[in-house]
Design a protein around this nucleic acid. Structure first.
Lengths: 219, 219
DNA sequence: AAATAAATTTAGATGAGTCTAAAAAAGTTA
DNA sequence: TAACTTTTTTAGACTCATCTAAATTTATTT
């Protein structure tokens, strides 16, 4: 079995390669994991020897099929545990990340499959991120950032791009949560802020907020 | 926070000191943990330096108040997770030990307290072992081994002394589970086996089985 | 293209937890 | 009590994941 540490590297590489397709840089991994580039360099050699990544010195790295499968399984576990924490133990969506980071390393497919069934086979985690199925397949939702839809278009809040505690708590203060229906009422070119109507209430959201909020529009 | 390894040492020392009061020997710990005496010796020095155990070279060891509190918290987590696995995820009582060994190291009192509430504050785990409360207090049940009750006495099965997979599976084959009512019908002095009546069915249990089955008798 | 800057890798060291082999202490037996 | 056995500890070495400092490669700028 991959160690705790190896799992974290694979997860980090997966996450970074999603954000910016192409090889992932050593420095980026170091920053994501909170370690030094030298340490990452060492580890990349080891991961490569284990056929978990494709790696050529100075060239950046990508996951192999095997590495990606492991990463997806960790993400699957992370997201299912998050659902458990929110749905069953009443944690808030901004509280569950760190706990899920621990729980995701519990090593048992049987456990996670039963947990999935117990949770009624959820397809998305509390932040709207899709949960990979047993084979590692992710069904992505068609969703766009609030910045990408037109005035008078309506949509349903389906997820967040930034799932930091700070952003989630900000959304809470505004009463914005997954499933809310909203309509873009006006776009201010000056600062790219938008006014929206959410559950009948009007409010203004900054460009930064709109960039990080995903909605599904009706056709 | 105590490391995974330190937690396992404390748990092992706690368990061994319950079985045989007095100091716990280095060899016993080594066997319990599946490591070598030399390794344990090293670790005992470290635990002692951290004031988790009382330790004098060649003398055996006991937990300090601090060490015992940590051990009890781990046992609390272990047993609550076992309840979760059996009650919510439908694992059998012989399947949950190893998973709970992993889950018990998840580091969050908030998590475990919420889990406890979610499980309706169970007082015993699936093997009948008592669950320490938030302060580490264990409410022991008055129970005795089947070997210690007289012919014609009745009792309710409340726990097992041996919670090995093998013993639990044997009990399953005999249809014996926690909560069953039974009466001792006869004791054979020859091999100390007993015949009992359980849910109306007569059966014979060996001395070894009787030693490892706890019952609560009516007054 | 040469010089400079940034990113990456190598080299050598550290701490945690483990091991084997050997030494020392405690316990047992003749 | 002397000899032997068992238990425990010490000594020295190994692996994993990390670090800092220095060297190397790649990228950028003039």
């Amino acid at each position: 079995m991959a160690s705790f540490t190896v799992e974290n590297y694979l997860k980090a590489i997966y996450g970074l390669s999603q954000k910016q397709p192409g090889g992932v840089s050593t420095n980026a991994i170091a920053e994501a994991i909170g370690t030094k580039a030298a340490t990452v360099s060492d580890m990349l050699k080891k991961l490569s020897a284990n056929k978990l990544i494709h790696y050529k010195k100075y060239q950046g790295t990508t996951l192999t099929t095997k590495g990606a499968a492991l990463a997806l399984n960790i993400i699957r576990k992370h997201r299912l545990w998050e659902v458990f924490l929110v749905e069953k133990l009443d944690f808030r969506w901004d509280e569950v990340h760190d706990l899920a980071e621990e729980l995701e390393h519990i090593d048992s497919d049987e456990l996670i499959n039963r947990l999935e069934a117990f949770l009624d086979n959820p397809k998305f985690d509390p932040h709207g991120d899709p949960i990979p199925d047993k084979s590692g397949v992710i069904h992505r939702r068609e969703q766009v950032a609030l910045t990408d839809i037109q005035v008078n278009k309506a949509g349903v809040v389906t997820g967040v791009k930034d799932s930091s505690k700070e952003f989630l708590q900000y959304l809470d203060t505004q009463g914005i949560e997954l499933g809310n229906k909203l309509v873009i009422k006006e776009v201010f070119e000056y600062d790219k802020s938008r006014t929206i109507e959410l559950d009948g209430k009007a409010m203004t959201l900054s460009h930064q907020v709109c960039k990080n909020l995903y909605v599904k529009t009706e056709a």
